[in-house]
Structures are given as C-alpha cells and as structure tokens.
C-alpha cells in the first residue's frame, strides 16, 4: 500500500486527500516547518505545529486559514491518523507521522539529531516507510559539535571587539539566527538585528520565545557602535547596507562552510560549520533506527545516499523527485 506519492502539486496522500509541503496551490496542506521551500503560498487551509502558525502569518499573510497542532497530538483526516513529532530542525519543525490500516509512514521534512539547545529535540519515530531529506548525504559532511562552534563564535567576537571591529554573523533569518542569538555571550557587547531577523523574533514572541538584540533602524546610533554583533541573513552580504558598520568582520554560519570552495566563494573572514540538517553520520543513524524497510529520499545527494543504504544495509531505497531545494548559498542549511 502506498500512502504518499509525488505528483505535480507535491507530496500527496490519496487515502486522506491532502498534501504535505506542496509546491502548488491545493485545498489542504500539512506543513512540516516554516522554511520557504516547504511552506508556500496559496493553499486553501494549512495545518502545522502551533509554533509555526505565527511564522506562517508573518510570511504568507494574516488572512491565511491555519490551524496549529501540538507535538504528539493525534487527529484524523478521512481515516488517516496523523501526528506531528519534533524534527529538531528549527522552532516548530515537525516530522509528520501517518497511519492507515496499521501501516506507518513518516515524512521528516528537514531534521537533525543534534540538539541545538533551542528547538524541541528530534524524536525517533518507528515506522515502516521513512521519507528522509539528505541535504548533506555524503561522507565528507561531518559537522563539529554545536557547542564547540558557539564557543568559537564567541571567542571570535571577543577578539574582533578587542581590535575595534564589529562582528557580522550571517545565518538564515528563521532558524540559524535564533540559534545564534540563544548562544551568544551577551556580556561581550551589544547585539543588533537585521530587520528580517527582528521580524521573525517578533512573530515568535507571540508564542513565548525571547531573544536578545535590538532591531536596526533609523533611530540606531551607528557612530557609537563598537565591538557589537550584527545578526543578518546571508542575502545582506555584499550589499551597501553594511557600510554603516565599518570597520567590521564577516562570518557565515552554514553547513556548506565545511567545504573550502564554499568558504572562499563567499569571501568571508570566517566560516562556521553550523547546520540545522543531519550530517552523514546522523543520517545513517536515523535511517537505521526507525526500523523502516522502505526508505525514500528527497533533497540533497539523494541518488548517492539511496545507493549507499541499498548496498550497505540492504534496505529498499527510492529517490523522490520533489521541489524541496537546499539552497547552496547557506540559506536553510
């Protein structure tokens, strides 16, 4: 029995007549998390984790019809039993579990096993069919321990401040930015936020999250700014917006920073290997631990990873051609 298939609109459940993270407008959409390749505009009704609701309203508009559910809460659509489980990717990110006539399917959306200290940690959900992302599905991706990276970031900030430089940290405005803010040692200096980051923080404050940092705006006193940290999305790099922060140093936080080519292409002063996705070892661990006999792979090095788990573990692995796209430029990675 097949519970989920890919059609021109997205990942479709025929039995329940709904979609998960669809890329074209449909009547009913279940959303794993708030990143733009998973949560798109134009759906009749959205169901997502309750912490994703304010993000959905921020990004797609207040008027959207959206319903929030909590982790572990079971509900039914046309006879398919559904529940959302923590994916550990960003705040509100979920794996979606589907049960129909005793068969269990899980779609991970984006996920990581490593605890980032902010989003609800990944929960292992046993299943028969496991649909996994594999953004970093090659053995060259071996991420360092998150806490060590944050220690590096803080000591780099301290060194920059001592030399009179401001520190600009780039991370995707939803997810990476909040992780960074949570781990910054705010005794080192002031923290400022790019508007895109401040907007997300404000939306998340509606469901109880608090982050350090002041929104940059017309009332900001730039002349007094010394040794501060500015958290901004990667798209801000290379723009005239940066001029006000001179002198500054730039650091990029992304899983892609593992490769020298990506580091050099961005011409950053520092690249921090910091990811909200699984690395090679985490992916292998997850795929085995679910106990699933059938594995489906989406965005990333899916054909290589499928061949590997096929040969290595004797699992039945298939590639699903979706439109979820890890952005090579460090957004959502």
């Amino acid at each position: 029995m097949t519970l989920l298939t890919v059609n021109e609109n997205g990942l479709y459940c025929k039995q329940g007549d709904f979609y998960i993270d669809p890329w074209r407008p449909v009547k009913l959409a279940l959303i794993t998390h708030g990143h733009s390749d998973h949560m798109r505009w134009g759906m009749g009704h959205y169901i997502c984790h309750e912490h994703t609701v304010p993000l959905l309203k921020l990004r797609l508009g207040e008027e959207q019809s959206a319903q929030g559910v909590s982790y572990g809460e079971e509900f039914e659509i046309n006879g398919v039993t559904l529940s959302f489980h923590p994916a550990g990717h960003i705040i509100g990110s979920a794996q979606i579990r589907l049960v129909y006539q005793g068969e269990v399917w899980v779609f991970t959306g984006d996920y990581k096993l490593e605890n980032d200290g902010l989003s609800e940690p990944f929960e292992l959900v046993s299943c028969d069919h496991f649909i996994s992302e594999c953004t970093f599905g090659l053995p060259i991706y071996h991420f360092p321990k998150t806490l060590e990276v944050y220690a590096d970031i803080n000591s780099w900030w301290a060194a920059n401040a001592e030399e009179g430089f401001n520190t600009i940290l780039y991370g995707y405005s939803l997810g990476k930015a909040q992780n960074i803010l949570t781990h910054l040692d705010t005794s080192l200096g002031e923290v400022f936020l790019h508007g895109a980051v401040a907007n997300v923080n404000e939306a998340l404050s509606e469901v109880g999250y608090q982050f350090p940092g002041m929104r940059l705006g017309s009332d900001t006193n730039f002349s007094n700014m010394k040794g501060a940290v500015i958290v901004a999305p990667p798209s801000a790099s290379g723009t005239p917006w940066l001029r006000k922060f001179k002198p500054y140093r730039e650091g990029m936080c992304s899983g892609w920073m593992q490769l020298r080519g990506s580091r050099r292409r961005r011409s950053m002063d520092r690249g921090f290997v910091l990811s909200d996705h699984c690395d090679w070892q985490q992916l292998n661990k997850a795929v085995i631990a679910t106990g699933a006999k059938h594995i489906y792979l989406t965005h990333g090095y899916e054909s290589n990873f499928a061949r590997w788990i096929n040969e290595q573990y004797g699992l039945h692995a298939t590639v699903l051609n979706t439109l979820y796209r890890p952005d090579m430029e460090g957004e959502d990675s």
């Binding site: 060259i140 593992q258 080519g261």
Partner: peptide
Amino acid sequence: RLAIPLWLLEESYYVVGDLAETLSLI
C-alpha cells in the same frame, strides 16, 4: 578507513572538486 565503497569517495570528490580536501574530510 571509513569503510565506504570507492564510488562514494569518487562522488564526494566530484562535489568537493579537490582531492586533498576530499581525502581530509573523509
């Protein structure tokens, strides 16, 4: 050393674009 097949190392090399770096990451 990593108990991976050679083809997977070659695919990795293709992504990294530099042999010394690929070997190091592996």
